[in-house]
Amino acid sequence: MELICICCPLGCRINIEKNAEGFDVRGNSCPRGKQYAIAEMTAPTRMVTSSVLVSGGKEKMLSLKTDKPIAKSLIFDALATLKGVVVAAPVNEGDVIKADVLGTGVNFIATRSIEKA
């Protein structure tokens, strides 16, 4: 599999294949690239950010993020849990909006405060 490394602006094209001992990594220019490629092959994770509607607030939308990275394969299922969610103002930055998303222990938290209208 070919990956573009994101560790630095070089953006090495890394070839990674599974072999008997683990992984055969080629094309990386540094150890960080190897680590990145192996993580991408074994357990890739991403921070997910999105937004939900607010009722009774000074603003219409509340922005959210996962408080920890979640498995890349769960991104769309995690986003689906936010469908139809409407949060009543006031909201404080850091408030948990959706706890324990898909049983992962990761929460969606507010990234801004919204006052009551």
Binding site: M47, T49, S50, S63, L64, K65, E93, T111
Partner: peptide, 18 residues
Amino acid sequence: IHNGFGLHTFKEELTGPE
């Protein structure tokens, strides 16, 4: 609202509003 801000200043990844 995406993350990736503040790595140099605060040594952590923040979203824009944060």
